[in-house]
Amino acid sequence: MLTQRLANIVFTVLVIIACAYFAVVAQGFEAAGLLASSGLPSRFFPQLLLGFTALCAVAVLYAYASKGEAGDEGQTVFGSSAEGRRGLLALVAAVVSYIVWQNFGYIVMAVTSGPLLCLAMGVRNPVIYGVVLALAAGVYLVFTQLLGTQF
């Protein structure tokens, strides 16, 4: 199982890399025309924050990597492997639903996202699938008929 220690170490390292990348990107910010000389440069605030965030990430990384004083020693990210699987599959289902909407439209997404999420959660009861589809139809009707949304 993925421990909090390992996950936090990976996360903070990624944050530090991202901070460095965005700080470099910020060097290229250019103000338009006459406004260019007014006040502080545009990169000032983002770079200040990135430096601050990176420092905090280093402090968290240090706590997990060396001192082991982060308060969640021995704990895992997910309660069990089944919980982890369900959570991650639900995440994939949400992303797939968004892609389906982009490519096939709202109605196809609304019809498939519910069953996809149920599958991700390991639902076997057909009644649940039926209820979820009925609620999806309800959401569609509320937005199109009551609020006049066009998809």
Binding site: A90, A94, S97, Y98, W101, Q102, Y106, M109, A110, S113, G114, L117, C118, M121, V123, N125, I128, V131, V132, L135, A136, V139, Y140, F143, L147, T149, Q150, F151
Partner: peptide
């Protein structure tokens, strides 16, 4: 939760699209 999870996700997707008419916002 097996009913709440898909319904809340669909409501969130649809609601945000209804406000902005933008898939980018979704």
């Amino acid at each position: 939760m097996t009913v709440i999870v898909p319904t809340v996700l669909l409501l969130s997707f649809t609601g945000i699209y209804a406000v902005s008419n933008s898939l980018f916002n979704v």
